[in-house]
Design a protein around this nucleic acid. Structure first.
Lengths: 222, 222
DNA sequence: ACCTGAACACCGTTCAAGT
DNA sequence: ACCTGAACACCGTTCAAGT
């Protein structure tokens, strides 16, 4: 701890890094709404205004929290033999990372700082797109499409319906549907939760294959 | 708006529907955070507690707001000659509707009431999937995949980077990237905002084609 | 330089009371 | 039945002041 190097121990010995780290822990455990200036101060045994002295107002603190997690994250390895497999692996790393740190990821998404959190993983993905022959604006479109797809499936993955009030759940609302164009068996199937992990994989492959050169598609390869 | 300042303590002639309608207008104009019990009361020329008498606490009010917009929405027509085109049209109706009512859609997403808002459009989409030969659990997976894809691209569409603080934007962060595996031209391309509408269309087609029977795919059709 | 205490302008929510 | 006023427990943020 850096505080140990201090010779003058008259104060609380609090440093900006300690505050940010404590804030990160609050978010990881309790989500964005658990991060209040007052709770954070209490967790550090300090007054609310002390937080302001160290990190400024809440927006700056949030950015610092995201930045701190970004630096802590280990660079996940990209695996696979073919360029296509490696692209999928790099994309899946972003997905896995977001699932592992859902609360910070959700916070980053709220404040529009997603890129700050996952830039190294994005860079790794684009590098694989380059290796697969996708570059320039096409690489940007491919990256953005994959990122937005991940964002959407994340919502489905970490709000597994039972976070909603009972009468608002997908199954509950669909159970009231009567439509001559829809078979009863299909309506019934709507009540079951989907396998989000599997659906994500299918969607990811579909989108990636849209951007890869035709030669990389297994379906249309000679 | 029904605004009027009352001093007397007699009836305001307020009904639950008026409160919900005023709340809906607040959200449509100013987003979720514009909907506070106090602002709503002020807009109606009434005391905060009156809101509670009419609609209960905020969660119930939010649900009522979403429900009210859902009932107001005109049923968008599905167009197209082939089953595939009609599926894409029905899916695009959900996308278009969400863009048109972004604030309420975002609110619904926050509280897990998305289905409440767009159930009729979901039913229309599933009906087209049925007509295209996708039913039962496969129809559920197809619907869910399309919905999650829409959710992700919505984030990209209504947070067009300039909502983020300047140094956190995609382009700004990417401009610092130096990676031997990535061509400078590709890094430069990352600074330009993508055409989200176009990317959404490509992704939607890719996902829909994953679920449609092979005969419906133009690429693999005989 | 570091930290405290009081204060301000907001929130959601409840309760007793008025007509 | 409908509505008000006061109150409680929270927020983020600022300011003067203490060491």
């Amino acid at each position: 701890m850096v505080a140990a190097t201090r010779t003058s121990t008259a104060r609380a010995g609090l440093e900006r890094d300690d505050v940010v780290q404590a804030a990160l822990e609050l978010v990881e455990e309790g989500g964005a709404e658990a991060l209040t200036m007052r709770k954070l101060a209490a967790a550090l045994g300090v007054t609310t205004t002390t937080i302001y002295w160290h990190v400024g107002h809440r927006d700056e603190l949030v950015i610092a929290v995201i930045d701190r997690l970004a630096r802590q994250l280990a660079q996940a390895p990209v695996v696979g033999r073919t360029p296509r497999d490696r692209v999928l692996s790099a994309a899946r790393n972003i997905w896995t990372n977001a699932l592992a740190h859902r609360n910070v990821t959700a916070l980053a998404s709220q404040v529009g700082a997603t890129t700050l959190l996952e830039l190294p993983l994005e860079v790794a993905l684009v590098a694989e797109f380059e290796a697969a022959g996708v570059r320039g604006p096409a690489a940007r479109d491919a990256l953005r499409s994959v990122l937005m797809c991940i964002a959407g499936f994340l919502i489905g993955a970490w709000r597994p319906d039972d976070a909603s009030p009972a009468p608002l759940r997908h199954g509950a609302l669909w159970s009231t549907v009567e439509d001559p164009a829809i078979a009863p068996a299909t309506v019934e199937a709507m009540a079951e939760p989907p396998d989000v992990e599997r659906l994500f994989t299918l969607a990811l492959v579909a989108i990636v294959d849209t951007y890869l050169p035709a030669a990389a598609h297994p379906e249309t390869a000679p």
